[in-house]
Design a protein around this nucleic acid. Structure first.
Lengths: 224, 224
DNA sequence: CGACAAGGATTGCAGCAACGTTGCGGCGCA
DNA sequence: TGCGCCGCAACGTTGCTGCAATCCTTGTCG
């Protein structure tokens, strides 16, 4: 999923980019309305996160133009102006949601998920690595459109790795998400699952590999 | 437009009813989850405004049931609990918006308008998998134009699976949609229904199969 | 350079939890 | 009163999963 952030503060943009990246979302950044329009011309975005106070005008003025370009794309408006009539105006201008700053990143993510659920032609939240597609919503992995039939533990391993794709996942983190906090583990079962998962991924030519980093953990990446 | 308000405080209900009436909206009032379910059976509502704290349980538990009854209907959750993780949870349970009390009626109205703008083009009325056609509106399944005569529970299982066709449905989710939040289940009845449903689907050559994922749930897909 | 230690990978195995199937009896409904 | 749905339980089956034994890899130190 690829989102466009229209926001003049660089700090906010980098923070959001990092947070969204953790959920396999690509965030493009447009600091002004002009940049935003140029970016939207490519029509590659699945949603817009829109700040109101921009150097070259009110962000809301973008909405009619967005609708003209690509009608159904979801728009979330962010703003420091929290007054009710401002929110009402934003929503009636065609925004799909309106969030007042400061906000929790988790809430923004949840609201994005809620909107994406409603947009039929947008792919569900997925991670793509190599030929592997992991659908976090449906909790399943596919290779070439073929469902990968994985048992629970292996699925949990793959899910956790896919969430942090390209970055190292500490061994303890992995254990925590595969087993509960309460579930105790006394041997190298985790390694065993990783091993079996590796075999299955290789067998179906997923084009990904689970790379191990000695003393730290694992990471999922496309195979060379 | 006709909305259903699920809320135990009479005061709030009458106030909202009056406010919405000014915009030519009809507001039906259900003080409990049971009332809400009964009201929803009529299928005349275009949206749901849902309070969380109800005499007979958490309002959120209504959402899966709503989705089973009529898929795409917009749900706005109201609550006094304003914590971020509560909001995230509500949205991820399938709510379309989440508003903390106290709120301005104007904002609620604007959010309803925003949702209504989106609602017509969502949620296909029928699902097609293999030779099976599931009509969510008429709540019936057909194979080769032939009506599949299924008992209530089996129909609910198939409906829930068809709604998320191709994606995994967790066992708990399935239980929630087939049995109510209040209806307790103490044995493997769900497995039994799945088993009988499988037989019927196979017998009439529906070209679909219910694939089970051990420890996770089931998924509906065309047979190989 | 070679040996050793430590961490990781692999794999067979046994236990057991989850799943599938089926028959029975109760209960509601026509 | 007959029919059929449904919850329940019993029992068979499957295959996941934790464990441990063994082998392999990597890094360190004399």
């Amino acid at each position: 999923m690829r989102l466009l952030l229209v926001e003049d503060e660089l700090e906010m943009a980098t923070a959001l980019g990092a947070a969204l990246g953790r959920y396999d979302m690509i965030l493009d950044h447009a600091p002004t309305l002009d940049h935003a329009l140029a970016a939207l011309a490519s029509r590659v975005h699945d949603g817009i996160i829109l700040d109101r106070q921009l150097p070259d005008g009110d962000g809301l003025s973008l909405i009619p133009r967005v609708r003209a370009l690509k009608s159904g794309i979801p728009v979330i408006v962010l703003t420091a102006r929290g007054a009710v009539d401002e929110r009402v105006r934003g929503l009636d201008m065609g925004a799909d949601d309106y969030l007042a700053k400061p906000f929790a990143v988790e809430e923004l993510l949840a609201r994005i998920r809620a909107l994406m659920r409603r947009s039929p032609d947008i792919a569900p939240m997925t991670a793509r690595i190599g030929k592997l597609v992991f659908d976090f919503d449906g909790r399943q992995a596919q290779v070439n459109g073929q469902l990968l039939d994985l048992p629970r533990r292996e699925l949990l391993v793959l899910e956790t790795l896919a969430r942090r794709q390209g970055r190292t996942v500490q061994r303890s983190t992995l254990e925590e998400s595969v087993y509960g906090y309460d579930d105790e583990i006394q041997s190298n079962s985790l390694d065993a699952h990783v091993s079996r998962l590796r075999r299955k991924l290789a067998d179906c030519g997923a084009g990904v590999e689970i790379h191990s980093i000695r003393g730290v953990g694992y990471l999922l990446r496309p195979s060379p």
